[in-house]
Design a protein around this nucleic acid. Structure first.
Lengths: 247, 247
DNA sequence: CGGAGACTTGACCCCAATCAATTGCGGTGG
DNA sequence: CCACCGCAATTGATTGGGGTCAAGTCTCCG
């Protein structure tokens, strides 16, 4: 319990931002650590960083030296190639990590942009590797997180390679729903933080196609949608949509 | 130097399959290790495994406990979903690792199939984590390899999300060329180990489309292709193709 | 209240999918 | 050795899903 003293406010601030007291600890890095290990983690994750909506957390080409855990907010990552084309490679929410792509070349290979005012915890990568060598659990957890990212990417490849437009959007909505649920939010009702254009880029579709698919889903009673607000009315219906190649 | 003795032959066999003497050491796990560290790696990577063309190295759903380094041969990985659709998520060649996707859930999330008679080195994962805690260089290298896989996946997402058929095939051929080059083979001439159907699955195209694109490239003098044999005649032309959205 | 950006909707078009026929190739057995 | 089989690949004709272009509506915010 925090001491009642003149330093109370500062204490609270510190407590509030420590991994050991973070309400994301079941989703984020601390998973599975004991008390002593958690303290070491707290030391490592000393810096926090606020990012305003629309600002970059990092840009492709910048030197990599830390990964970031999202404490609050919402991000997108995107890559762009010379001729101007770009693609959103992912949307990240609280408890998820950003920057894993930078490890390989020690240079960030994509851009990370806040889609709403956000706060991230800075995890200096060399410290993380150091602590991983001491704490088995942390090491293993980190490996799992990287692997999960690979599996997720395979899922997106599947989506882009084999699904038609409406299936892609259904998969996208169900995925969002599941992730909001894991964070204690409603599985059926949420605000999209990204534009139709960004959804389209992620799903390999044009914004008009995304918009049409939303409208169709609404006509069919699968969802209620009004701009960024989405309410899922028929989860089973959306799932069924995904398992039919045509029709 | 191997001793001249009755055990000579056995010795040679051991030497031949040790990481420290493997001609892939600049591509594979040993990268950057000193002599002592290399010896420890040799101990860890004790088992080898032969896989015949068409056989599975592992299947989705099987328990994960090792990753595999390809010593010789060629593999594909694919995922399949309930309704029967499947997608090739990658083609792997010598020196590359297989099985990273299994770390996250301790269960393989895709199938790995040999496209020609192959040999892999078995790297028990718990041993690898153990050794990573001892050897900084190995740990860092392993992290880089995982990260590289993530970056590669982003490249594929880009390809699937934004490129048209011919661009995809051009990108695919250039990528193969580059990887063969890194292994000391000709950059301009190689045999494809996979079918048109498998290429198509990987690129999000139907096999007929792949075939047509091959034919078109040949007509335009970019490549010479006869079944599985491919000869790149105009690398610059293929690259140029990739940077034009239409035309 | 006015303007800019986000979104929706419609009409048309094009690239790749689909359907279908044929050719080429490698292995197997008479 | 060659005929045959089955699979892989090529090629053609047609179709359709999503892209493109364009017009209009909604919303947020200064």
């Amino acid at each position: 319990m925090p001491q009642r003293s003149a330093t109370n406010k500062v204490m609270l601030e510190v407590v509030k931002t420590a991994c050991s007291n973070c309400n994301l600890r079941e989703l984020c890095m601390p998973l599975g650590l004991d008390h002593r290990e958690m303290e070491k983690l707290d030391e490592m994750v000393s810096a926090r960083h606020r990012i305003r909506r629309g600002e970059h957390l990092y840009r492709a080409g910048q030197r990599f030296d830390a990964i970031y855990a999202i404490r609050s907010g919402f991000f997108k990552t995107d890559v762009l190639i010379e001729d101007g084309r770009d693609q959103v490679t992912g949307f990240q929410m609280t408890g998820e990590l950003l920057g894993l792509d930078g490890i390989s070349t020690e240079t960030h290979s994509c851009n990370a942009v806040a889609l709403e005012d956000s706060e991230v915890c800075v995890i200096p990568f060399s410290h993380l590797e150091g602590l991983s060598r001491e704490i088995r659990t942390l090491q293993h957890h980190f490996h799992k997180v990287m692997s999960r990212e690979i599996v997720r990417d395979h899922g997106v490849m599947m989506l882009l390679g084999t699904m038609r437009a409406e299936e892609r959007l259904a998969a996208f909505l169900l995925n969002l729903s599941q992730r909001f649920t894991a964070r204690g939010y409603s599985p059926a009702e949420f605000y999209l933080r990204m534009t139709r254009d960004e959804i389209g880029s992620y799903l390999g579709l044009k914004l008009e196609t995304v918009s049409r698919a939303f409208s169709r889903f609404q006509e069919e009673g699968l969802i209620a949608v009004q701009q960024k607000y989405v309410r899922i009315l028929d989860t089973a219906g959306l799932k069924k949509l995904m398992s039919h190649q045509r029709g």
